[in-house]
Design a protein around this nucleic acid. Structure first.
Lengths: 199, 199
DNA sequence: GGGGCAATCTTTTCGCTGTCAAGATATTTT
DNA sequence: AAAATATCTTGACAGCGAAAAGATTGCCCC
């Protein structure tokens, strides 16, 4: 009845199947988790045969890799959004980036787990590699701008933001999650601030 | 030829199949990752039919849940080992726990990911729930012993240790991983120390 | 504008997986 | 010893990812 190709609306060529598959994949991992990801289910959601994704992404891991690359760019965007709304002083900018880090993990936990907790993404892929490096570089730059010295400073800030984000995305640290937004931001900002020694 | 039941050595009843399956499962996730986990492969490794695990664990997630519960106990043991070798002062004990946290993540990264990064473990299971709570409680107790006040102090210490462990288990923070053991410990200890405000 | 070429998508097939149901074997209980 | 129970095997089923082969379409060049 409602088979994609019995209604005449559906052309043989999709038009922008690649983007449609990426969008469908993000919805799928949001609903079923990264470990419940199914390539055939994604194809079904996009209204296309189960073998269609292969041409655009090779295999299932290829699709997840492309999704992760996009994810890193959105990850950076989430930090940039916080930074734009914050005091331009270097240290405030660094803390804002940390808030954006956590924002992303809480807003799109499945995507966050794909970026940092999945073994199915291929970092030999240039696009993913670039995107991931850009995300790290942004943080490292802000640490030096804020007065960081050794690489331990960057590691500390990264670890603190990541630890908060990962634990909260997993539903732990409920005492912080259940805070109202403004109090929550203040708490997170204070904690992230501990990672960097005072100027 | 080498079928389990053509050699007469193999009795119909295994003896301690439950423990054997758990051991096989840990080797499997260490070799193929949590996302590459296969129940049939675990059964094969234990020399048993593919449906044998069901009786002991229900389904695949049940096995992973039981493995995670054991994992949390070993996780606590790794921290206790570091604590036993450290200065008994509360703050030194807390830092030692952090070192044990990272030790565990680096020594058994697959198991660590099962504990903190998998959606296939069922925390409604009483055994897993108890084990996980015990791990958290141990950390929280040490934070108050070391002079922690609000729950933000516990969150900060947890997040810092967890962030370091998770990133390093994923192969990031290479500048720290590549340090020689003593220097690495010192660096990690210094970073964890930042999470708790000075007494 | 028409012919051919390449890209895109479908269909079919394969081995592997997790789960369930039914049967076989051993252990424990009565 | 008989019966009940626990443990393990066998067989079946649908869903999965991947590969091969076929159908359809858009595009480029003559």
């Amino acid at each position: 009845m409602s088979d994609p190709h019995t209604d005449k609306k559906m052309p043989y060529h999709h038009g922008d199947l690649r983007a449609a598959l990426l969008a469908a994949a993000e919805v799928e991992i949001a609903e079923h988790g990264v470990e419940g990801f199914s390539l055939r289910q994604v194809a079904r959601r996009a209204g296309v045969s189960h073998a269609a994704p292969a041409h655009h992404f090779g295999d299932a891991n290829g699709l997840l890799t492309a999704l992760a690359a996009d994810g890193y760019r959105q990850f950076l965007a989430a930090q940039a959004e916080r930074e734009a709304a914050a005091d331009p002083a270097p240290r405030a900018q660094l803390v804002a980036a940390g808030l954006g880090y956590v924002d992303f993990a809480l807003t799109r936990p499945a995507l966050f787990r794909l970026l940092f907790g999945s073994e199915r993404t291929d970092y030999a892929d240039p696009d993913l590699s670039m995107a991931a490096n850009a995300a790290y570089q942004h943080l490292a730059d802000q640490v030096v701008a804020a007065g960081g010295r050794d690489s331990a400073d960057a590691a500390a800030v990264w670890a603190m933001a990541h630890g908060l984000a990962d634990l909260m995305a997993a539903g732990r640290l409920k005492t912080i999650i259940s805070l109202e937004p403004s109090a929550r931001d203040a708490t997170i900002a204070a904690i992230v601030g501990r990672a960097l020694p005072p100027a």
